[in-house]
Design a protein around this nucleic acid. Structure first.
Lengths: 127, 127, 127, 127
DNA sequence: GTGGTCTAGACCACC
DNA sequence: GTGGTCTAGACCACT
């Protein structure tokens, strides 16, 4: 589940952030569900607890989780937050990346197909 | 043309890479066209030539340029190369980013609209 | 009345303190009026009595309540006490916060308007 | 300049954050001005560099500073950012604190005087 | 020399 | 038990 690449340029704590965001976005971890404890996850993937905590803190400042001392860390229900700024930023990044993909050889049809796949996948979660 | 953000977290050489990629992707710099010389560009944007060189090396390793000793650097005609790996990578990134955008509130319609915009823009370049 | 946010970073006992202070400040709980008993409040909001007790102790040490063994806890009539220290502290905090608000874009007019609103609200309580 | 209270409940790194925010808000540290380096400040106030870095990171996530590897940390020009959410939050806090101050015994006149003082102080900086 | 990452290990507050 | 703070010390990328 947590396959880290210790040699990657991407810091370990960011890799953990990415993995967890993916689980949250794909609704594997649901709003208000508890994340593994800092110590437990640290032991499980054999990483220093401070690194895990750094990841959780980053997740928190990105609005994907919240922590309560003595209780644990939990998935933030994004419905409660304002996401307009984030959305604008991600739209800019998306456009750049789409342009690059088309340049490299992705066809319009393939791109549209991707959009449909992703959209369909999301709708499943709402069942 | 080269407006760098010296305050960005993104290293300067990577900003230069991004700018050049954008020019290449948007067909401003065409295949086999010569890139500005390291010294010329360094002087133009008031940056250490070493930084420019680093950017050009990175551009090369990403498959967007090639250099001929004693002649200079040129835009790589990506059609000639194998882009499957790159394409697969970018597709993975694109899917992740689309999922995230939908998660934080982008609607399917807005996403489709973005795709159409980007596609339309590309077709213009081919005129 | 006691809507606690179990997801908040603020410890539960401090949330209770804040709520009670709000009720006292807004004259809902009047001087020398009895506060709900530890057990009653604990049951009402489904929280461990120890936590309530801790809140009451904090309220006491902040000068908003006093307790009589065997009788219960009561609202302290702050007019009777020395509030100079508290007042000085809160004035310092207020100035800091006002400066920050102005720095991030609040206008003088908006700030004045806020003062008028708060003042007007207080005068109502005296009716 | 940096008088820390090691026995305070407020973590050291947050005390540093508060001090620096104060300097920024009061225009002592101006936009794009360089903050002391992590190591330099750590040595100056005899605190572990990691703690300073944590403070700088927090300052960054609050939108008051930005850091560039190899260059240093700098004051963020808040004009560039969107501050509406922050402003709404601080307005709520301000109203609560004003109510409390009036309850403890601050008069309307004193409160108005404070507003004028703070406003006047800010206008001076614009000269 | 700059900020950033990571580890190992200690101690604290909260519940 | 939970997350949070702090230290000491090593190593890396960027300029």
């Amino acid at each position: 589940m947590f396959q880290l690449d210790l040699r990657s340029r991407l810091p370990i704590y960011m890799q953990i952030v990415e993995k967890l965001k993916e689980l949250i976005i794909n609704n594997v971890l649901k709003p208000d569900e508890q994340l593994p404890s800092v110590r437990a996850l640290a032991q499980q993937i054999a990483i220093n607890p401070n690194t895990i905590q750094k990841a959780y803190r980053e997740l928190e400042s990105q609005g994907y989780a919240y922590s309560i001392v003595g209780r644990g860390s939990f998935v933030y229900d994004i419905q409660h937050g304002e996401t307009n700024e984030k959305l604008e930023k991600i739209k800019v990044s998306l456009e750049k990346m789409m342009s690059e993909a088309l340049y490299i050889g992705l066809t319009n049809e393939e791109l549209l197909q991707m959009v449909e796949n992703v959209s369909a996948k999301r709708e499943d979660y709402h069942d």
